[in-house]
């Protein structure tokens, strides 16, 4: 981690001690300073006392679960970035995690390197003290407005007829802009079927989106293809609560 002049502090919260031990060892190797908490109350106290740069939070914990910790943090105006570790993998559940104010989520079991990449990406994206895009109801980029609650997209006021997966892809790309997102990751996150559908499924939705947005791959206003890497949302994204 040559790029980090100051080691960044992570708080990891999980009630399983074995998992916590392996997780902290992994993140320490990746160059982070790691603090641990084994339940929700301890997590809230640590955030208040020590102000970590990011919290990795397990959802299912006895007494106060991860969602409750997140709600209390956000209710008190604390916007420390949070990555939720969930065990319930349905797309609805995942969408809910983001709307409740998480910056990102990972499904257990996850690839360890993926967690490190997500932590780094969230730290890079975070504008300290401000509402993360992932908790905003509307995502706005120029003429394009995505209402994440009603699952509707509008371009210059006109509603776009998108399939729900195309909407999911657009939402994911906008939330992670300007990061490049691989097809596999989109399949994992939007479809939840990483292996079975094949990456062409993603390309088909991107074509659908480009047609709806009148966006051209040669001169992209919104979605750019990076050969061999994936897609990225190139325009500036703002959030609205």
């Amino acid at each position: 981690m040559v790029f980090h002049m100051v080691r960044q502090n992570l708080l990891i919260v999980d009630d399983e001690s074995d998992l916590l031990a392996e997780l902290s060892s992994l993140l320490e190797r990746a160059g982070f300073e790691v603090w641990k908490a084994t339940d929700g109350e301890e997590a809230l106290a640590t955030v208040e006392a020590r102000h970590p740069d990011l919290v990795v939070l397990d959802v299912l914990m006895p007494r106060m679960d991860g969602r409750e910790v997140l709600r209390q943090l956000r209710a008190s105006g604390d916007w420390t970035p949070v990555i939720l570790l969930t065990r319930v993998g349905t797309p609805a559940e995942r969408a809910l995690s983001l709307q409740e104010g998480a910056d990102d989520y990972l499904n257990k079991p996850f690839e360890p390197l993926e967690l490190i990449a997500r932590v780094q990406a969230v730290l890079r994206r975070t504008r300290r003290g401000s509402l993360p895009l992932s908790s905003c109801r509307r995502l706005i980029s120029g003429d394009l407005v995505l209402d994440r609650q009603t699952r509707q997209a509008r371009l210059a006021g006109k509603e776009l007829p998108l399939t729900s997966r195309a909407f999911g892809v657009l939402e994911y790309l906008m939330l992670h802009a300007p990061d490049v997102v691989s097809r596999e990751r989109l399949l994992d996150e939007v479809w939840g079927w990483s292996y079975a559908v094949g990456t062409r499924a993603v390309d088909i939705r991107i074509t659908e989106l480009r047609k709806a947005l009148d966006d051209h791959p040669g001169t992209p206003r919104y979605i750019e293809t990076l050969v061999g890497q994936g897609y990225c949302f190139v325009s500036e994204v703002e959030g609205q609560a």
């Binding site: 399983e16 392996e22 992994l26 190797r29 570790l85 065990r87 257990k108 079991p109 996850f110």
Partner: peptide
């Protein structure tokens, strides 16, 4: 299965 499996994956990576 998910928690034990996550721990095992992390352990392997370490």
């Amino acid at each position: 299965l998910k928690n034990p499996l996550t721990t095992i994956c992390l352990g392997i990576a370490n």
